[in-house]
Amino acid sequence: MNHLYLTQEHEIFRQGFKKFLAKEAQPFIEKWEEEKMTPRSFWNKLGENGYLCPQLDEKYGGFNADFGYSVVIAEELTKMAGGFGISLHSDIVMPYLESFANEEQKQRWYPGCLSGDQILAIAMTEPGAGSDLANIRTTAVRDGDYYIVNGEKTFITNGYSADLIILAVKTDPKATPAHKGISLIVVEADKTPGFTRGKKLKKLGQHVNDTSELIFADARVPVSNLLGEEGKGFYYLMQKLQQERLVVALEGIVTCEVMLDLTLEYVKQRKAFGKPISQFQNTQFKIADLATEITIGRTFIDTLIRKHMDRENIVTEVSMAKMWSTELAKKVAGECMQLHGGYGYMEEYEISRRYRDVPVSTIYAGTNEIMKTIIAKNLEL
């Protein structure tokens, strides 16, 4: 499909990136799945080739690339069946530094983020606070030139490998309403006494991306690592969720497209009762339904990407897209596995990996129930 927001330059970039992934990533996916993380060496190769944070200004070493390049990278990583942690680094966490870091912080952190020497993560979710962000309990109490941080975060993508962690904390636990007490501070993992990582969490899927708990016990973080202003953290988070959810929506629809392609190839080859199962009406109708819904979803998301690149406020539509594409991905995964028959349940077939990787997309970046709440609120219900 031709995307209206992509130019010939984007497509040339795509071909180069596809060749890079074919050589440096695809042969090792199974190993990375077993190790439950993407190795640092791959991050460094991404950095060497300019595939991390290409949107950064040239004066910092970036390419000042538009969001279309991030779309291309996210699409190709998704086709590879892994890499959400990389998109999270470049397209979800880095925008916080772009918008709210001061010049000294940018000079300090940008080089490592571009090279892959400093992997980014963002830590909001806690054992007792997920969607209810205003009620996080991790605190940061001022003590001279440091914040003393206590609390625990969980389900943190890139958490096990991250070097820089944007941490949502309560700097004013007594603030009313509660969200006005939230601030963002940047934790430098190797320079923060009192900070420890939990073990890599055992997940149902998405094994290529490491996920872990983060523990803060009187951790000392310099006040100079405050991102923006105290008490503005909740507002900063709300500003950046549009792009995060758009990336998740995009990855959802790309996953649908990949699963449909895998299934089309399979049903044309697999024979039953003397003919390919693609010739059975049941198969044709199911695939026709899926192809239609996927095409509708892609058209909608492409429109939103164009609007996002034009800096339009599309919070409601992005909430719809995130909900629609991730729910559709679950549906497509189930239908496509069924069409694969028993082989679909075997690890050697990619559809089985897709089937277990998909469900969490309806949970992270705000659950789909939260998406419905946002949509309803913006419809003045």
Rank of each mutant, 00 (worst) to 15 (best):
A162P: 15
I156N: 14
I156S: 07
I156E: 09
N150M: 03
G151V: 09
R142G: 01
D143M: 13
I148C: 02
A162N: 15
N158C: 01
D143Y: 12
N150A: 01
G159R: 08
T139A: 05
D143G: 07
S161M: 07
V141F: 10
I156H: 06
R137V: 13
G159T: 06
T138W: 00
D132M: 12
D145M: 02
T139V: 14
D132H: 14
I156K: 14
D143F: 10
Y146S: 07
Y147T: 01
V141Y: 14
V149L: 02
Y160N: 04
S161A: 05
N150G: 12
N158Y: 13
L133Y: 07
V141I: 15
K153W: 12
I156T: 11
Y147S: 01
I136N: 11
N135W: 06
Y146E: 14
T138D: 02
D132V: 05
F155G: 11
A162W: 04
G159F: 02
Y147E: 02
R142I: 03
E152W: 06
A140W: 06
I148M: 03
T139E: 03
Y147H: 10
K153A: 09
A134P: 06
T157G: 13
G144D: 04
T139N: 04
I136Q: 01
N135V: 04
G144K: 00
A134T: 08
A134I: 05
I148T: 15
K153Y: 05
N135L: 08
T157F: 09
Y147F: 08
S161P: 14
G144C: 04
I148N: 10
V141N: 07
G151N: 03
F155D: 13
N158T: 08
D132I: 10
D143W: 12
N150I: 10
S161E: 10
T154L: 08
V141H: 11
R142F: 02
D132N: 15
D132E: 15
S161C: 06
A162S: 13
G144A: 01
K153D: 07
N135Y: 01
G144Y: 02
E152Q: 15
R142K: 11
R137K: 11
V141Q: 05
I136W: 01
I136D: 04
T139K: 03
I136L: 03
K153F: 04
T138C: 02
I156M: 11
I156F: 11
I156G: 05
R142Q: 08
F155S: 14
R137I: 10
V149N: 00
D145R: 03
